[in-house]
Amino acid sequence: MLKITDLHASINGTEILKGLSLEINAGEVHAIMGPNGAGKSTLASVLAGKEDYEVTSGTITFEDQDLLDLSIEERAREGLFLAFQYPVEIPGVSNVNFLKTAINEIREHKGLSALSAKDFLSLVKEKSALVALDASLASRAVNEGFSGGEKKRNEIFQMAMLEPKLAVLDETDSGLDIDALRIVAGGVNALKSKENATLVITHYQRLLDYIIPDFVHVLYDGKIVKTGGKELALALEEKGYDWIKSAE
């Protein structure tokens, strides 16, 4: 589904990703862990197409297309979803209104007709229940005045609404209480299928008790330096990152 090969990316002339390679297949759950500043969010932003970053070399293919050739919105319409580490507040733009536009633009891209108002509303009902997002939050301005945890739930709500092929969740677990963590993880698991894949970026092994990864990668200084199974997360939790650095 996604294949990243020797990716180098920089911002304002500073190289952040320094030869990163990663492959994700349909049906898989991957986790990326790594110290602060390693480049995890940078990877997520480059995948989503943020224009501040310059890809200096390497390739990314997504569903047999050159991802780097696509605009931000085309990537989303092709099924890429990024749950932001720091969701933005957009006063005056209602959550459901923007989602309706997003869904219909994605449907149009797929050659489907627009959702009726009725079908859209029942979808909102179903998916907000899935992540236990208060119905009033769904209709408020995007993230405006939301608590930290509510913003994260809102990201997963959007993911549930848009049903992406590949979801990249950037520290969606941070700032969530235990109950919310379970709910969010439950939402992610409920949406899991053989056709889609998930990439979770996290600092905490705890999340991976709920979202069981097939692979755990360590991103360090702009590269994937180690890949293992679920047990790698446990080892990291216990020993930190130093042993990997020294093993390098």
Binding site: E73, R77, V88, E105, H109
Partner: peptide, 15 residues
């Protein structure tokens, strides 16, 4: 707001 613009586009909405 460039962050907001990026966010909306990253949800599939044209620029």
């Amino acid at each position: 707001d460039q962050q907001a613009l990026f966010f909306l586009r990253a949800r599939g909405i044209s620029e």
